[in-house]
C-alpha cells in the first residue's frame, strides 16, 4: 500500500496539471488539487492492485474535476470554469494566442469538450491507451477516436 505522501511525490504535479484542465483560477486550482488528493486518501483502502495506481489516481482526479465544475456552476463562478464551452464567434478553432506556450496549451485544453479533454490530459501524463480506457471506462479504440478528435481541435486552436 502506498501512502498519500508517496502519491503526492509521484503524482502531485500531474494531478495539479489535471486540476488546471478543469479550473482556470490558480487559487481554485490549488483547492481542487487538494480535494483530489484527499479523495484519493479516502479511496486508497479500496485499491486492490498496486500496479493499477495510475488509472486509480487519475480516475479519482477526473471525477473530482467534474464534481468541481458542477459545484462551480452552482455558485455561479462560470467565468473560470469550462464545461463544454460553446464556440465564440471565431468557432471552436479560435486561436489561443495570449500568454506563453504552456499557458496557451492549458487554455486550449480547457476549451476542449469534456470527453476529449479527459483523454488528452491522460495521454499527456504518459498513460497508455489501455490505461486511459481503464481510467475512463471506455475501449482502447474509443480512446484512439477521442485522441484524434482532441488533437484536431487543439491543432486548430493552437496553430490556426
Amino acid at each position: 500500500m502506498r501512502s498519500l505522501e508517496e502519491i503526492i511525490d509521484s503524482y502531485g504535479a500531474g494531478i495539479a496539471r489535471l486540476a488546471a484542465s478543469y479550473e482556470a483560477d490558480p487559487m481554485l486550482q490549488e483547492d481542487l488539487t487538494q480535494d483530489i488528493l484527499l479523495a484519493i486518501h479516502r479511496a486508497l483502502p479500496s485499491l486492490r492492485a498496486i500496479d493499477r495506481l495510475g488509472p486509480f489516481v487519475f480516475r479519482i482526479a477526473h471525477n473530482r474535476g467534474v464534481e468541481h465544475v458542477m459545484k462551480e456552476m452552482r455558485i455561479k463562478r462560470q467565468r473560470a470554469v469550462e464545461i463544454d464551452p460553446e464556440p465564440d464567434t471565431g468557432g471552436p478553432e479560435r486561436h489561443v494566442m495570449a500568454g506563453d506556450s504552456s499557458q496557451r496549451v492549458h487554455r486550449a485544453i480547457r476549451r476542449l469538450p469534456l470527453p476529449y479533454r479527459q483523454v488528452i490530459t491522460l495521454l499527456l501524463e504518459d498513460l497508455s491507451y489501455a490505461e486511459i480506457g481503464e481510467t475512463l471506462g471506455i475501449s482502447a479504440s474509443n480512446v484512439g477516436v477521442r485522441v484524434n478528435r482532441a488533437k484536431a481541435q487543439l491543432k486548430a486552436m493552437l496553430d490556426g
Binding site: 511525490d9 502531485g12 495539479a16 496549451v105 490530459t121
Partner: peptide, 13 residues
C-alpha cells in the same frame, strides 16, 4: 508545454 507546468510538492504536502 503541458509538463513544463510543475507543482510545488512540499507546499502541496
Amino acid at each position: 508545454d503541458w509538463r513544463s507546468d510543475t507543482a510545488d510538492i512540499a507546499h502541496l504536502r
